Amino acid sequence: MPFRSKLYEMPPRAALCVVLVSSVSGCTSIPLGEGASLGSYAGMTTSGGTLTKAKLRVEAAPVLAARTARIVPTSVQLRGGSTFDSKDLALVSNTIDRTLCTGLSDRFEIVGPNQSADLVVHATVTNIIATNQTAAAGSTVASIGATVALPVPIPRLPIGLGGLAVEAEAVGSDGSQKAAMLWSRGANMITTRARVSEVGDAYSLSSAFASDFSRMLVKGRDPFKGMPSMPSMQRINASLGGKPKYDACTAFGRAPGVTGAVAGRLGLPPRWTDKGATAPQ
């Protein structure tokens, strides 16, 4: 009997469990490798979660003592070169910056590019696995068509899933590295919504990386350990497209908000709703 037919015959809770279990194997594997942008790769420990691969180090005392932070726009240094559209890459890197700025605003005062800061934060995209646009379109059509009939999430097609790898560090005012992270995650069948764009999955995953890295700096510890906390009101406001807490964050533009969420559900390319940075990066 086809998998989907079996789901229809199950109670909703049982069907949901089957979908979630199947999604664990239905994900892209993306290597966790060193790039060339960090001041040091020494002393990192393996971390991460169920879906995320990570290595990190953080000096808790100086990070927690810091009060101001400056974000250097994210760079793109893809292993083996790039065949992606430059505008699409700019959206991925800017989403990292925008999410970093929002996340760090929970504890730090974010200052502009010409101001001194206790911590200078910089990320580099090192690898992107392209999303297969045909498979993403098929997944979107199937999901929209089945949503009304089946009250559980419909997994994506387990082909053509994309991925993202990023590395980042925070450097103190003395020029030494205070925190660093290598991070990679592949899209999966259930939690990464399909978007018809070569960078659709990388775009979706970019905010996940930035949330993990900013949480490490805000808490001064491994962000993958401990219980997750509720998002602050300023983060909720920013995610809905509201004005950021600090003026320095306006350079990265506003999140697409509700319009972007609807576009994501429809599988539309990120560039249709995300206006990107407001200032040259």
Rank of each mutant, 00 (worst) to 15 (best):
Phe3Lys: 10
Leu7Val: 08
Tyr8Gln: 13
Glu9Phe: 02
Met10Ser: 01
Pro11Cys: 06
Arg13Glu: 15
Leu16Met: 12
Val18Ala: 13
Val21Ser: 07
Gly26Ser: 15
Leu38Lys: 01
Gly39Ser: 11
Gly39Leu: 13
Ser40Met: 04
Tyr41Asp: 05
Tyr41Phe: 15
Thr46Glu: 15
Thr52Asp: 11
Ala54Gln: 01
Lys55Met: 13
Arg57Phe: 13
Ala60Pro: 02
Ala61Lys: 12
Ala61Pro: 01
Thr68Gly: 09
Thr68Trp: 08
Ile71Leu: 13
Ser75Lys: 13
Ser75Gly: 07
Ser75Pro: 02
Val76His: 03
Arg79Tyr: 03
Gly80Tyr: 04
Phe84Tyr: 14
Ser86Met: 06
Lys87Ser: 14
Lys87Leu: 12
Asp88Trp: 00
Val92Met: 08
Ser93His: 03
Ile96Glu: 05
Gly103Thr: 10
Leu104Phe: 05
Ser105Cys: 06
Ser105Ile: 02
Phe108Lys: 02
Ile110Val: 14
Val111Thr: 11
Asn114Lys: 15
Ser116Gly: 14
Ala117Glu: 03
Val120Trp: 00
Val121Ser: 01
His122Gln: 15
Ala123Ile: 09
Ala123Glu: 04
Val125Ile: 15
Asn127Ile: 00
Ile128Phe: 11
Ala130Val: 03
Thr131Ser: 13
Gln133Pro: 09
Gln133Arg: 14
Ala135Pro: 00
Ala137Glu: 12
Gly138Tyr: 09
Ser139Cys: 10
Ser139Thr: 15
Val141Cys: 00
Ile144Asp: 00
Gly145Ile: 05
Ala149Glu: 09
Pro153Gln: 06
Arg156Phe: 03
Leu157Phe: 12
Pro158Asn: 13
Pro158Ser: 07
Leu161Arg: 04
Gly163Gln: 01
Gly163Trp: 05
Leu164Gly: 03
Val166Asp: 02
Glu167Ser: 05
Ala168Phe: 02
Ala170Ile: 08
Val171Arg: 06
Gly172Phe: 10
Ser176Met: 08
Gln177Lys: 13
Ala179Leu: 09
Met181Pro: 03
Leu182Gly: 02
Trp183His: 08
Ser184Glu: 05
Met189Asp: 02
Ile190Thr: 13
Thr192Phe: 06
Val196Gln: 11
Ser197Tyr: 09
Ser204Glu: 07
Ser204Thr: 13
Ser206Gly: 12
Ala208Leu: 10
Phe213Pro: 04
Ser214Arg: 00
Arg215Asn: 12
Arg215Phe: 00
Arg215Val: 01
Lys219Asp: 15
Lys219Gly: 01
Lys219Ala: 15
Asp222Phe: 05
Phe224Cys: 04
Lys225Pro: 00
Met227Phe: 10
Pro231Ile: 08
Ser232His: 05
Met233Tyr: 01
Ala238Arg: 01
Ala238His: 00
Leu240Asp: 11
Gly241Val: 02
Gly241Gln: 03
Ala248Glu: 03
Cys249Gly: 06
Thr250Glu: 15
Ala251Gln: 12
Ala251Cys: 02
Gly257Met: 01
Val258His: 06
Val258Gly: 02
Gly260Trp: 04
Ala263Cys: 10
Gly267Met: 10
Leu268Ala: 14
Leu268Lys: 14
Arg271Gln: 14
Trp272Pro: 00
Asp274His: 03
Pro280His: 06
